[in-house]
Simulated assay, not measured.
Amino acid sequence: MEDILRPIYQERASDPNTLGVLTIGKIQYSIPTTDTFDTILLMIVKEAEQPIFVKHYSYESKKAALYIVTEKKLNNWILLGSNKRIFDWLYNGKIVFDRNEYVAKLKEEMKEFPFYGRKIKMGLEFAKLIRRYMDGKAFFENHHYLDAYNHVIHSLHHLARLSIIENGFHPEVTVWNQVKQMEPEIYKLYVELVNSDETMEKRLELLFLASEFLIHSRTKVGINHLLEVLGEREFWTFNDMLSHEELVEYSVDLSILLEYLIERGYIDVKNVETKGQGVFHRCYFVAKKLS
């Protein structure tokens, strides 16, 4: 297989822009991290016109996919966890080209999982968790139980990912297998939600009670990064936050996260006068008891 596909990446590997190349083979009956392809070729480059370029090939009644990914895009995937397969590809892929041990060093760094990187990832997962939890609760209170169930399932998934990161690991494709070992309490909650014989309403009611405690117990670790950044200024407008390079990734989840933290006393609001009579700019700052 490797001999047949080598010409695809060999010419590009000689380009100084190429940092590394890995091959990932499909394992029979395994989790489909290769998207049904027999082989994935992952090529990491410094720069490119497109952050992701994909090409599909056929060989010996089989199929392969070439992914050319920029270093910036790869780091974005690792930080945000937006491409869960990338961890499997990097952990289990075979390195066929590695300029100055770039891939080897990247894999080592991923295993060590620097604490600051963990703080950012935990913050992003916590924001997604609060978004799903709050939306699910609103649907539940309006008796839209199936919609509530959908959001609660997602909120538990983010809670599971948060707990894995808190334990110093990257969430992989098989998240629940990881959580079963690390946080059996969350795993049990998920299983009970899915398998319980109770009515949907009763299942959700019990889960919201249990989730409230689990979320509360992880709030401080989940918002550590956000409060650290907000502590850099006396107060912030919402647009200031969205413009900050470390907060921009919170995006659509930031507004509801702020309201959640205001209700629980982690963030305070400052009203700043505008030219309009009785209209104020709403600004935010870390509560004094926490600063």
Rank of each mutant, 00 (worst) to 15 (best):
G136F: 05
L162D: 07
K128E: 06
M122D: 03
L156N: 06
H157M: 13
E109I: 12
F113E: 09
M134P: 00
R99H: 09
L129D: 10
N150G: 02
V152Y: 06
R132P: 00
N167L: 03
S155T: 11
H158Q: 10
L146D: 07
L106P: 03
G117P: 03
K107V: 14
Y145G: 03
L146A: 04
L162P: 00
L124D: 03
L159K: 04
D98F: 05
L106I: 10
D135R: 13
D147A: 09
A104K: 15
N100F: 07
I164M: 07
H158V: 04
R132G: 07
H158E: 13
N142M: 06
M122S: 06
L129F: 08
G117E: 15
K111Q: 11
K119M: 12
H158A: 10
Y149T: 02
L106A: 10
A160Y: 04
F113G: 09
L162M: 11
K119E: 11
V152S: 08
L146C: 02
G136C: 07
K107L: 11
H144T: 03
M122H: 01
L106F: 03
F126E: 10
R132W: 07
H144Y: 15
E109Y: 05
H158Y: 12
E125A: 14
E141F: 01
A160C: 10
M110E: 06
V152M: 15
H158M: 08
D135N: 11
I130D: 06
E166S: 12
N142D: 08
Y116Q: 07
I165R: 02
H158I: 01
R118M: 13
